[in-house]
Nucleic acid binder design. Sequence first.
DNA 1: TGTTGTGAATCTCTTCACAGCT
DNA 2: AGCTGTGAAGAGATTCACAACA
Lengths: 217, 217
Amino acid sequence: MQQRVAEQTIGRLSLYRRLLERLLDENKRRVFSHEIAEITGFTAAQVRRDLMGPGPSGNSRHGYDVGELIQAIDDYLDHPGGQRVAVIGIGNLGRALVAFFSGRRPNLSVVAGFDSDPQRVNREINGCRIYPMESLSEVVVDQNISVAMIAVPAANAQSVAKLCVEAGVSGLLNFAPVHLRAPASVYVSDVDLAMSLEKVAFFARQKGNNGKPSSHS
Amino acid sequence: MQQRVAEQTIGRLSLYRRLLERLLDENKRRVFSHEIAEITGFTAAQVRRDLMGPGPSGNSRHGYDVGELIQAIDDYLDHPGGQRVAVIGIGNLGRALVAFFSGRRPNLSVVAGFDSDPQRVNREINGCRIYPMESLSEVVVDQNISVAMIAVPAANAQSVAKLCVEAGVSGLLNFAPVHLRAPASVYVSDVDLAMSLEKVAFFARQKGNNGKPSSHS
DNA sequence: TGTTGTGAATCTCTTCACAGCT
DNA sequence: AGCTGTGAAGAGATTCACAACA
């Protein structure tokens, strides 16, 4: 167990890592905090502060070694044995999730999908097998799945979540437009698309026309 | 008229409103802050604080009138003339977005989709017409679209965003796994699925005493 | 010189606590 | 009695600013 972890720092570390991997692909070997900040849209101080968790590896002269920094973030964020993920609900969104995550990160692999519609089950999408909803508990246990993405209609989300938790899942990423209840031993994150859109619409209106013409530094 | 707007308050107001509409459907006429808090997972004090923006309408005896409260939030969040939204990129995710938002909220309607693949254009999904990418500027101006949801591959996201902004869009909801740059007069929100999943995986690991080797079958 | 790592200051958001109302 | 609305306190996150260093 590590010390107090700032919620949002973890998210940003994930973003930094993805950027760093891109930089490595482009054969960039070293990077400064202000470069990471520039591309990700945060501040240099923020980046350095976040990197205190994974453990400092910076060098005053050349900044950070990209490869070493990726390794440090890996060690900090990833579970040594990897984690298995399931997608519940294989509608448009569920399919998008399976496709999006397939083969993206070996340490965090989407290994199963579930749907209650018989027409959608017993096939594979991007190498991920789709099972009937009835076999959820069994498959979750067998495959040692610890995280579930919930992409079912709002009316079914809570009962599906319950099934997942009872089967041993300890993290839920919920896309249904309801707040999920779960025991304190389970981490729940609600990604509410309707809310996100309405928020953008509100601030777009503020920014867009009658707002003050901003004087950005 | 409105003072400093707390970013996250706007998001929660959107959630409260959706809940209130559900309550109204269930013929619940009055509600207390602690009930809203219970269902949405926030605290009662938080709810009351958030509602100071839309303007207080609570009554000590019976709490809030559900209908009045919805109206107050509508007045606070919505643009009087409504706002039009476009979805850029009609892959799995884009289709899911169009389907999810169609007919959901009259004041915030998804009126157009765009894709660069000729096979995907010139048809309708849930009553939303899909146009070729070339006509983006024209359609955005004609239909007075002020918000765009970007669901194209990472490599194309920034250039698509530029097109949108130049055509007059002032809010972007970005699903591509990159940080979008935009002028200060445009509000940008990045919904990063990979980041969200990695964050859940991290905290799932911390929460669940998930280090136990599975009781092998 | 220019950068990292970090205590301290600042800014933002949430919770407390209670006056006032019904 | 029980609730709302809100000033004030508290917690949390971000930014500042600078010592240490190459």
